[in-house]
Design a protein around this nucleic acid. Structure first.
Length: 553
RNA sequence: GGCCCCGUCGUCUAGCCUGGUCCAGGACUCCAGGUUUUCAUCCUGGCAACGCGGGUUCAAAUCCCGCCGGGGUCACCA
């Protein structure tokens, strides 16, 4: 068999959706694993909704995930056009579509239609009233020549004349699916504005770009017979189809790009006193957004509102996961498992489910793609991400953490230099499941010594109790702290250990009061790292303050 | 509503095609115990599912039918 050519064809109307990312991933893996090619094409035939910014964002998301395209827009080190099948923006391929329209028109397989949107709407409503689906058909007394003449001066669309026979789609995942002619209407292939519709452009471009495997979400299954009919009318070879099962939210609803707006809208309504000013947008825009479920607010404004209202935005776009501190390889691993699995066991008889991109490329096939929809399991992503963070060399962790910070938390970069992060890394790596959580375990570093509040329970349990009391031990150990040299994790740990040995007390007796002094609570990374990262001066002043404050009890 | 797709632990899934090896295996979550200077990591163990009803068969998660449930789609959006 010839090497396959797959393609991912997003419309640039927003961010790359996690479902789209999976489709792209499977397309890329299938091609890569079989020495084929993976094409990226931008479907910007909707003049009103497409934007260059969105297209650039999608490219960026794809590249971040490590999903590189062979043929397509040249950017981020991917793409190019060695086969000469571009351009890859549909808006730049008008001439090709026009030729194809002409062919169909001449064969009378396509025809101009003059119905106004209002007329169509009325007919649709009428059909609905009779509980029927509106199927558009060419009228019986249609005069092709006359219509062509009329089309010269009147606005119109072009419709495809659906052949009157059932169409069977052969799907690599679902098997054979047959659609009756009665269910298929004469679809519009060229809009009033002269642009092709999605249905037409995909068919023409897939042929022109040599696509052998059409891989897409199951929501397209119902479109497929129309595409097949179109391909046959144009004399094209029919590619293989693979319709991927859908991905849902944890609550079972379909993952939608509008989910974020929805979540914030609910919170705004609950709060009651939010205005456009809070969101940083026009009151008019804000009002429209509140009223209309289909209107979306820009990402930044949504973010501002969600912060203000304390709601978590659902993560549905690749960018959301990136911001939340997930690693691209963990995201890739997790979405690859949504609807697919390698069906291999490891030596212990466990299912193999942690793997990298190379493994995916080698093992991916459509016969192991399931048919049923799956919900996105956030906890599993977290666990996979955590696994990878734990397994990373410290230097790599720091480099990735710094990269993440430079994009989402540049303030942290001014507080911690690379050297400091390197020392902290081992402690953080087993305490942070995501890069966004990385500063959590070392939050004590950012406290102001003068305003540390001591946790009452911890004080009672670790500082005031015992004979000698924690406070007394702390006072004694302060002397040791003065002398430890160099002031490094290893030396501090051994000072701690020998002190306890000499006094014949358990480590915890001493360690816990120190934690209270340093962090205000009973929890911190191992004391060697905790102290060393704070530095001798800060450690001593926090101990002194603690001694002074808690002696009053 | 028409058409189409789907239905194994809470979630992701293995098993289904080629019926017995499955009183259903793994992973995540959760729970319990152990190691440990706290937390975390790590280790050990545990809870938990074949939607329902009929068939076919010596035998059904696996094959057939019906029902129920979920979803997708019905645009001059993609």
């Amino acid at each position: 068999m010839n090497p396959p050519i797959t393609r991912f064809a997003p419309s640039p109307t927003g961010h790359l959706h996690i479902g789209g990312a999976r489709t792209a991933l499977f397309c890329a893996a299938y091609a890569r694993g079989r020495n084929g090619r993976f094409v990226l094409r931008i479907e910007d035939t909707d003049q009103k909704r497409s934007s260059d910014a969105a297209a650039a964002g999608i490219l960026d998301d794809l590249a971040w995930l490590g999903i590189c395209w062979d043929d397509g827009p040249e950017a981020l080190g991917c793409g190019g056009d060695p086969r000469g099948v571009g351009p890859f923006y549909q808006s730049q391929r008008r001439a090709l579509y026009d030729d194809c329209f002409q062919t169909l028109l001449e064969a009378e397989l396509a025809y101009p239609a003059f119905d106004s949107p209002e007329q169509l709407l009325a007919r649709r409503k009428e059909a609905e009233k009779r509980k029927q689906t509106f199927i558009y058909r060419q009228s019986e007394n249609y005069d092709h020549a006359e219509a062509l003449e009329r089309a010269r001066s009147e606005p119109h669309v072009l419709r495809f004349k659906m052949p009157s026979e059932p169409i069977t789609v052969h799907d690599e995942i679902l098997g054979e699916v047959t659609f009756a002619y009665e269910e298929l209407d004469d679809l519009v292939i060229r809009k009033r504005d002269g642009f092709p519709t999605y249905h037409f452009a995909v068919v023409v471009d897939d042929e022109a770009m040599g696509v052998t495997h059409v891989v897409r979400g199951q929501e397209h299954l119902n479109n497929t017979p129309r595409h097949v009919a179109l391909m046959q009318a144009l004399g094209y070879r029919v590619p293989r189809f693979a319709h991927l099962p859908l991905i849902f939210n944890p609550d079972g609803s379909k993952m939608s790009k509008r989910d974020k707006d929805k979540a914030v809208r609910v919170a705004v309504r609950a709060a009651g006193n939010i205005t456009g000013a809070d969101a940083g947008v026009d009151e008019e825009v804000f009002a429209r957004w509140m009223k209309d479920k289909t209107v979306q607010l820009p990402q930044e404004n949504l973010l501002v509102l969600s912060k203000k209202l304390g709601v978590d935005l659902p993560e549905i776009d690749v960018e959301d996961f990136r911001r939340a501190g997930y690693l691209p390889e963990a995201v890739v691993n997790t979405i690859a498992l949504l609807g697919w699995n390698p069906g291999e066991k490891d030596e212990q008889g466990r299912d193999i489910e942690r793997f990298d991109r190379a493994y995916l490329d080698r093992h991916f096939s459509f016969d192991r793609v399931g048919k049923s929809a799956s919900k996105f399991d956030r906890d599993k992503l977290r666990a996979f991400n955590f696994d990878r963070i734990k397994a990373m060399p410290a230097a790599e962790f720091v480099s990735r953490w710094r990269q993440w910070c430079s994009r989402y938390d540049s303030d942290l970069l001014t507080k911690l230099d690379e050297q400091a992060m390197l020392m902290l890394a081992p402690a953080i790596q087993q305490r942070a499941a995501t890069l966004a959580e990385a500063k959590g375990p070392v939050s004590f570093l950012f406290m102001d010594t003068g305003s540390i509040e001591y946790d009452e329970k911890a004080v009672r349990k670790h500082v005031l109790k015992g004979d000698p009391t924690g406070l007394e031990l702390l006072r004694e150990f302060a002397d040791v702290l003065h002398r430890v040299d160099p002031f490094e994790p290893g030396t501090i740990e051994s000072a701690l250990a020998s002190f306890c040995e000499a006094r014949e007390i358990k480590m915890g007796r001493l360690a816990q009061p120190i934690r209270v002094a340093l962090t205000g609570g009973a929890v911190s990374p191992p004391l060697g790292i905790t102290c060393a990262s704070l530095g001798r001066e800060l450690v001593l002043s926090r101990v002194e303050r603690c001694l002074a404050e808690l002696s009053k009890h």
